[in-house]
Nucleic acid binder design. Structure first.
Lengths: 137, 137
DNA sequence: ATGATGATGAGAAAGCTTCTCATTAATATA
DNA sequence: TATATTAATGAGAAGCTTTCTCATCATCAT
């Protein structure tokens, strides 16, 4: 991803926006809170305000560059949009996040909404798990 | 539901707790935020503090008397536990909430976690819809 | 290079929820 | 039934995440 993507999204190419994008791309965490992005920016030597991080992440969300998830715990987490839709498993002990897709569930959801007479706009599915590593210890 | 249920849950039977329970039972909204419970209490003439409402709802949750949901919008909503598990559809326009159950999705979820080597602890599934009434207008 | 426009940073402020602590109420005991 | 013990309550302060405000600064088109 590069500055062209920002332009395409109708966003002016600015330093803070490129830095945030860079953090999201290079971090080894795919899912980061605004605070985590902010701290990563500081550690990488970029002076970006927290308010700007929130603003930029929200704009990226509107532009479809990132998606926001509200897992339990009060903080929103953001991840780079990969193109393909997926849902998440979150470990209740260590916080680790895994992604999965399941077409059977997807189509079942559409069916449920439809049969009730409603139009499915989006959905949020999170499986809270005890991950295999946490089960050992 | 009555005072016995509080005792069974290991909770001392107090006036605020009974009042909150009463609101949850008699309100025509099955899903209420703490703030809404609080206002309903005031309107019914009960002087209960907002902090107490939060405390009591959290205790009820631990006791399994109510369940808490974090729909989009920042506010938690609470509902009386009915015994049978269900998921929710929330209208993005009017906020209306409907419940549904779907065994196919449930078993698929267990399978997904299991196949990844994890233990499913709980899950959160919310379908955001445009409800049939909001589609008309 | 310059001007117009939009973005940024810092701190204030908002919104929801939890905490603190002095006061009050509820249970167990006599 | 009165009393002592223990827990619950209320009010406000405080915490946490997120958004807002506004003066300053950077970006893009000319």
């Amino acid at each position: 991803m590069e500055s062209g993507d920002l332009k395409k999204a109708g966003l002016k190419v600015t330093l803070p926006r490129m830095k945030v994008l860079e953090i999201l791309e290079t971090s080894n965490q795919r899912h980061m809170s605004a605070e985590e992005v902010y701290r990563a920016l500081l550690e990488s030597g970029s002076e970006v305000g927290l308010a700007t991080v929130y603003r930029v992440l929200t704009q990226f969300e509107s532009a479809g560059l990132v998606s926001r998830h509200n897992f339990e715990g009060g903080q929103s987490v953001f991840e780079l949009q990969t193109g393909h839709h997926h849902d998440h498993m979150v470990c209740v002990k260590c916080g680790r996040v895994e992604e999965f897709t399941n077409e059977a569930i997807e189509s079942e959801q559409r069916k449920i909404a439809e049969e009730a007479g409603h139009k499915l706009v989006e959905h949020s599915l999170v499986l809270y798990i005890e991950c295999k590593d946490c089960q050992k210890s």
